[in-house]
Simulated scan of single mutants.
Amino acid sequence: MKIALVHDSFIQSGGAESVFEAIFELYPEADIFTSIYDKKFASRYGKIKASRLLQRLPFKDKIEKFAYFLMPLVFESFDFSGYDLVISSSARFSHGITTSSKTCHICYMHSPARFLWEPFDYFSSNLIRLITSPINLWLRIWDQAAVERVDAIFANSNYTAEKIKKFYNRDSTIVYPFQSKECRQPVEKRKDFFLIVSRLSRWKQTDLAILVANKLKIKLVVVGEGEDLPRLKRMAGKTVTFTGRISDSNVVDLMSRAKALIFPQKEDFGITAVEAMVCKCPVIAFSEGGALETVINEETGIFFNDQTVVSLEKAVLDFDKFHFKGENCVRRGKEFSKEIFLKTFSVSVKREYEKFLQSHQEIN
């Protein structure tokens, strides 16, 4: 069987890239396609097929951000004739590939594109939202047509599946992502600092945690980089520390010692919360999105109901009323293991591919 794997881009490493790497482990002989990639990924995967034009240009991270409207043309330009199975890993455009009627296309959808379908949550500037709205209107029309071409969709959570149903009127199979961090034995008594581990974008709502830390004079360690970092540093008080991007081992060390992970954003799944629980670190999470499917209220963490300083402040103050058992956090976190993901994903792919073949036999 000839297989191809497709991913939006390989510019930075995150949860979607970890999932793709696991899929590649299942199909190591597959050809890989993407819009644009950093050379560090070529050493990991070997030859990657990408847009020749975009790949020649400098500042690839900027190209991906500002020339996003070109991506449908890029993905539709790839030739998948001769492939039996194509698996796309998509949070933006890679599901928009075109395949023949003889090729089965399965999409693992991390999320429908946020900037297209949730612009009021994604864009912090009304002006940017207004300027991009004509392009994004066309892209939404293209996106709906692109999803119609997909033979089967896997979603990373029930929350994502609900959005897929709402935006595309398509059903999907839930295949939860996984955490793979190895946590050292936590210290006997956890320290008095709270922790955030995130890409620093406005929609991640990191500023809520900073404002609460300023008000309550509590220690907060912020791990990550992103375009919102300068603004966050300007508003941060003396009890807030920024580490920038650090190694996985250092993240694990912080999770092993932190009082709690603060998770103020609405994520489609939110692997960071699961990683924290594996390190016996309870979670203070916003009560929407994928966190509702991972964090168990008052057992492995607590929820706050509104993305406001008042709501998060109350949760932080209430946190000490609960006595969280580390073993409960670990047990919950390990329910999202890589082994379970690989087994569920491979079984689901086999089932959908057999259904695809059967449907074509009936037609013929």
Rank of each mutant, 00 (worst) to 15 (best):
V274P: 08
R92W: 14
R129I: 01
F120L: 14
H105M: 06
I63L: 12
F59S: 14
Y353Q: 07
L229D: 06
G15A: 07
T173K: 08
G326T: 10
K334D: 14
V197C: 03
G15Q: 05
E293S: 10
F263G: 00
V309I: 12
D207L: 10
F356R: 09
S287P: 11
V278D: 11
S201C: 12
R114K: 05
D207M: 08
L195F: 01
V6P: 05
W138K: 13
G237Q: 06
F286G: 00
T344P: 04
I271A: 06
E339H: 10
F304E: 00
R170G: 02
N250C: 15
T98C: 14
D268E: 07
G14R: 06
K219P: 13
V310L: 12
K217Q: 15
A276N: 00
S249G: 10
I296P: 00
I128V: 13
I153S: 01
A30N: 10
S51C: 10
L73T: 11
T99V: 14
C183K: 07
F66H: 11
S133F: 11
A30I: 13
I135E: 11
S172V: 01
H323I: 15
F93C: 09
Q361Y: 15
F269Y: 11
A50N: 03
D228E: 15
I164A: 01
V175F: 04
S201A: 14
S81P: 11
N364I: 13
S100F: 04
E313W: 01
R245I: 09
F193N: 03
S337A: 04
D228R: 11
F319I: 00
T34V: 06
C329Y: 00
I106M: 05
K163E: 05
V309K: 05
F319S: 00
S81E: 13
C329M: 05
F69E: 05
N156L: 01
G226H: 09
I48F: 00
F336D: 04
P264G: 03
T160N: 09
R149A: 05
R190D: 02
K217R: 14
S133I: 06
F41P: 03
S100Y: 04
L70Q: 08
L208Y: 00
F66P: 04
N250L: 14
F345K: 04
G290N: 08
V187S: 10
V19D: 02
R199V: 05
F75Q: 02
H110S: 02
K321G: 08
L208I: 03
V240H: 03
R92K: 14
G14L: 01
S94T: 07
D38R: 07
K166L: 12
P134R: 02
